[in-house]
Nucleic acid binder design. Sequence first.
RNA 1: GUGGUUAGUGG
Length: 280
Amino acid sequence: TITYSSLIDGLVKANEMNEAIAIFTQMEESGCTPDTISYNSMIAGLLKAKEVNKTLVILTQMEKSGCSLDTITYNTLIDGLSKANHVKKALVVLTQMEKRGCTPDTVTYSSLIDGLLKANEVKKALVILSQMEKRGCTPNIFTYSSLIDVLLKAKEVNEALSILTQMEKKGCTPDMIVYNSLIDGLFKANEVNKALHILTQMERRGCTPDKVTYTSVIDGLLKANQVDKALALLTEMDKKGCFPDTITYTSLITGLLNANEVNKALVIMTQMEKRGMLPL
RNA sequence: GUGGUUAGUGG
């Protein structure tokens, strides 16, 4: 059973859902009984492929087979349903899990809050957040990160920064993902100086920018018409062994073209191809 | 015997 589950999980992560289904069937035919973990992987995979109906079928099968649903099962459902554009169903799952005596944990609440925020249900997200705290479940870096990211994307700069202060006051130290969200969001909200300030702060605190950080900064600088500074950062990241990927290059080329820097864009395209990447 | 499953960031 463990061998089959590992195989299924690998296929799910490689987005080979049809293969995973085939292995699952083969597993049953060979007399191996899927356990909770096997079902959890299948559910995660089916929802990633937005196969809501197939998910409900397998969920029924899981219950009929006497296999117990655990917190991870419900968490997987909540996250997967939210990402398949069914946040309302995710809310129902939360009610169901509690009714069935399964205690929601930080993952449950963070997934749901993230899903609600991304579906523009900010008020509901805040309701769930307060419900979470009332239940003695402490928001963690994932919870705060979603809040900061979505608030900034909605250009709610002050709200996002106040969440940042709040999380730090609670002893939750921002990590690279939080910094990346802040930098990207601030640039997109036209807060170029604030974004650059966060970049400095991040480095001062010993958090090394990665290619996501650099791509956001480069993209932001180009949109602010700071072409030279953007190109200098490309050189800097390369020198630090942080190699640009297709997204970095695409963003550079698009930005340079929008800034009417056609020749510079061509130079970058050549460099990109020399490194074995194709412009999309 | 911490063996397999779930949440946050860039074009």
